[in-house]
Design a protein around this nucleic acid. Structure first.
Lengths: 344, 344
DNA sequence: TTGAAAGCGGTACCAA
DNA sequence: TTGGTACCGCTTTCAA
């Protein structure tokens, strides 16, 4: 049904090899032959079979991306950044969502390896590095995106999470918050390091760290905002409630917001909130949400570029870390001063 | 490097064919041989080369999905629905974003055809059906998602958009709005049909239709909310401003909301707003947004199921239309009555 | 129950 | 400049 090199070769009375060379712009073909071949290709609307090419060259020109949740605007942005870089380089993108489930993630990675994708980009929800050892065994290049692992020297593109934690916390302190709480996940490097930054900032400020105010939850349950809602409920049940909350990410912060408003408290007057990730719609929320911007689109595009460079490298490269600097975005949810916020 | 059937065959002193049969659970292999083969596969952690299999079988076990914008929560949900169905059926998903650009979309479709993906799912931003003729020429099954074309009898999974328009408009009328405006896109079937529903509802109610109140804009410029913002500005500049606005989708409505609040007007007291798509965070917005739910996740999963059935069909099927019934979700942005809204 | 041979649609190498 | 041949890893067919 579909046109093949063989068909064109037959029509023109040349060999398949010649046609193949024209296809790939080899130099050693006469202009005349080249033109005849190109003409015929146009006529028949020839499309090379990339599956066949992949088999012989060993390159599928396909990258794989695994994210915890496609609907999470942060990862959606990352995916968008990845896809635009890949498109411009002639690469396709296979996307899988792990639904925040480590088992599913392992499974998806396995599938991608079997498909012989040229490289993998992974925002992992795993606790262990087992999957990554497997990828290394197969000698496939991979890039950790956003989330990394201690003791796994791998290619990584992400943020300085300790700095994010410190930045958010300092901002809350500067807005007069005295009793700071943290809500985040477990096991994930971003959560762990941001908590570290949170602790560091409090210590620097000479403030005590209360364990009651540190809520760590895995968020298998749901979309993140549900987790935030529940976590905030716990905080609000304490005898002395916090007056500032740093949420590990924006969806979490949205749930927290719900719980606070539902309890009849005001944001930011009673409690300041700040998130992280600076999700596309953060400024449009019930109370416009302050956040630490991680430039998610850039994060995606840099990841893709790194992956491409690994794929193109002849020899194994030593792992590279690319850190995108975070940036404070102040909106109403944390703004107790009189300065007006823009519409960023 | 990677283990091949041949390696296992050599190790065990059997033929490649035998190993291949075991791999695919053929009946005509003795239990003894089968066990030996399976054991060796485990030992070597054998992964079949799907690219090779794709070449010979002509099936890549890969579906393609083209959406206008990955970060738009509506399409993100669709993608999630698609991906979960495909995963369970052993299919992978190649995603491309057209960035609302018809040329880019054509290009992406071309790429997917060249990759010999088994089927295509497309939420199109095109004005013409040229691309789809091309897909048909190649005999590849495809499903239009959410957006369809007049005079193109194709497989389609989407909503009854006229009903959506009518439902939204009627709701605004029931909430006492007298001067109704519509903001939507151009050329896209959803926008056209929802506008038709809007007109129909006004006519049924015996109300005049003012062209000033109908704003149709392509939204190449940006994320949709920017378009909504600009469109609302225009409406607010009129001598008699509307008191109810139906927005073709939720991001549009978010921009509209911004413009209205910025003008010092109240929602819903001065102007009611309703969107469509019922995006994940619609309830968390500055003013919780009423919307017409389209069950985007179901839309995605049904699309995937349809595509799979087409791929598996031996003979060409006649095009099938699957319509997901819309549902009104009332939140504060359109609620002038005294009834309290839940937290849906 | 097993396997030899042919071939899927390309590319690589080297000789003509 | 051109093309014969081998082969990428797997499946299919059919004979043993």
């Amino acid at each position: 049904m579909a046109v093949r090199l063989k068909d064109i070769a037959r029509d023109l009375g040349v060999s398949v090899v010649t046609v193949s060379k024209v296809l790939r712009n080899h130099e050693d073909i006469s202009t005349e032959t080249r033109d005849r071949v190109l003409k015929r290709m146009k006529e028949l609307n020839y499309q090379p079979n990339l599956a066949a090419r992949a088999l012989v060259t060993g390159r599928s020109h396909l990258m794989g991306l695994v994210v915890p949740d496609l609907v999470h605007p942060f990862f959606a942005q990352v995916a968008k950044g990845v896809s635009s870089v890949l498109r411009n380089r002639g690469y396709g993108l296979v996307i899988a969502s792990s639904e925040e489930d480590p088992d599913l993630e392992r499974q998806e990675i396995g599938q991608m390896l079997a498909r012989r994708l040229d490289g993998l980009l992974i925002a992992s929800t795993q606790w262990t590095v087992e999957s990554f050892r497997k990828i290394e065994e197969q000698q496939r290049p991979y890039v950790l995106v956003d989330r990394k692992f201690n003791g796994l020297p791998a290619n990584f593109v992400g943020s300085d999470d300790v700095a994010i934690g410190r930045m958010a916390t300092t901002h809350l302190l500067e807005n007069g918050c005295k009793r700071l709480a943290y809500i985040g996940g477990e096991h994930v490097s971003t959560a762990i390091e941001r908590l570290e930054g949170f602790r560091g900032a409090l210590t620097s400020a000479g403030l005590p760290i209360s364990n009651e105010y540190i809520v760590c939850r895995p968020h298998y349950d749901d979309a993140g905002d549900v987790t935030g809602y529940k976590a905030a409920k716990e905080l609000l049940a304490l005898t002395s409630i916090p007056d500032g909350i740093f949420c590990n990410n924006d969806p979490l912060a949205m749930g927290v917001m719900d719980a606070i408003l539902e309890a009849g408290l005001r944001i930011p007057e009673d409690i300041c909130i700040i998130g992280a990730g600076n999700v596309r719609y953060a400024g449009a929320l019930r109370v416009p949400l302050s956040s630490i911007d991680q430039d998610s689109a850039l994060l995606g595009s840099r990841s893709a570029e790194l992956a491409l460079s690994l794929v193109q490298a002849k020899t194994p490269q030593r792992p590279k870390q690319i850190i995108i600097p975070p940036q404070l975005v102040v909106r109403q949810s944390s703004m107790r001063s009189t300065v007006q916020a823009g519409r960023p």
